[in-house]
Simulated scan of single mutants.
Amino acid sequence: MRKGGNPYYSGPVSDHFDGVRFFNPGGAAPRGFVDLLRWQFGGGQARWPSRYDSTFPPARPDLNVDGDRLRVTMVGHATLLIQVAGLNILTDPVWSHRASPFAFAGPHRRNAPGIRMDDLPPIDIVLVTHNHYDHLDLETLAALNGEHAPHVVTPLGNDTIIRRAAPDGEISSVDWGDRIDLGDGVVIHAEPCHHWSARRSRDRRMALWAAFVIETPAGKIYHVGDTGFHEGINYRAAREKHGCFRLANLPFGCYEPRWFMASQHQNPEEAVMGMVACGAEYVAGHHWGTFRLTNEGIDEPLRALEAALDKAGIERTRFRALRPGEVFDVPVSSEE
């Protein structure tokens, strides 16, 4: 056990770390056990089909995407393959059947991964945004380390967890505001988002959560794994610091009921507001349709997203709600 009872991280107090737990400055803490029971036993959870197969076949990605090209392929939920500047980058990789600490219980996949693991190109970078089971999957990380030996970048404390799966792996632990220069004009920045963390009942907020900005010669990419909208504060801060983005990867599912989820998961309308606030030319929408984690129906986020885009006067083609196997070749931004 590390100092102060935190099993993952020991470090100086900061504006988002009190010496034991991380927190959202000026934001909301996750709701407690009583509210969790109120939600779980309060009804209102829409039924999902046992299967929700993608309309796209499993993708077989090119080995290399370079020049001014930027390609995103959906694997499922928050797992995306980003190909840019000759690099192959995976976000929050989960190939397991369940997003759960148990193999026999917990949310299970409603569709197969959009890329078979054996069909992955050589993976250079893995970004893990936080330690919830639908984002940090030790079985997948162990397999990736054995086959690809990628450089894993993750917020403070999550490296301790990932070491269990990849004891010999190259893992960089970053705080908000840190940067990792990979050379050839590629820099990864860790930035704030409004969320929380936990792997079990007694380690809440003991590892940090983060968004990432990927700065490349082909443009800047803003990747958000999970976030509450938080009045758009972090979106505006990202734009002020980094300028506009050629692409933002934004979550837009897993958001009902709002009284419980608003501080941790934005809804489609808020995702569209986030797109505008951060100055993203295009969005790859994720975090929907694979694992049932909340109350809304499986395709409800799609209808709500279309309504939000129409209301904002934004072309639907600029915010792509990606399905497993779908490939998005992102146009060159007008800002480039």
Score class of each variant (00 low, 15 high):
N6K: 12
Y9M: 11
G11A: 04
V13R: 14
F17H: 11
G19K: 01
F22G: 03
G27F: 08
R31L: 13
G42S: 02
P49E: 04
Y52P: 01
Y52H: 14
T55P: 02
D62W: 10
R69F: 05
L70C: 13
L80H: 10
Q83E: 09
I89M: 15
I89A: 15
P101T: 03
P101N: 07
R109W: 10
A112Y: 02
G114H: 10
G114M: 10
I115F: 05
D137F: 12
A142H: 11
A143L: 13
E147C: 05
P150I: 00
T154P: 08
T154W: 06
G185C: 04
A190Q: 11
E191I: 14
R202P: 00
R202S: 09
R202T: 09
A210P: 13
G219K: 01
G225V: 03
G225S: 01
G243M: 14
R258W: 09
A262V: 07
H265C: 13
P268Y: 02
A271D: 03
M273R: 15
G274C: 01
V276G: 00
A277K: 11
T290Q: 14
N295W: 09
I298V: 11
R303E: 06
A304Q: 15
A304H: 14
E306P: 00
E315A: 12
E315D: 12
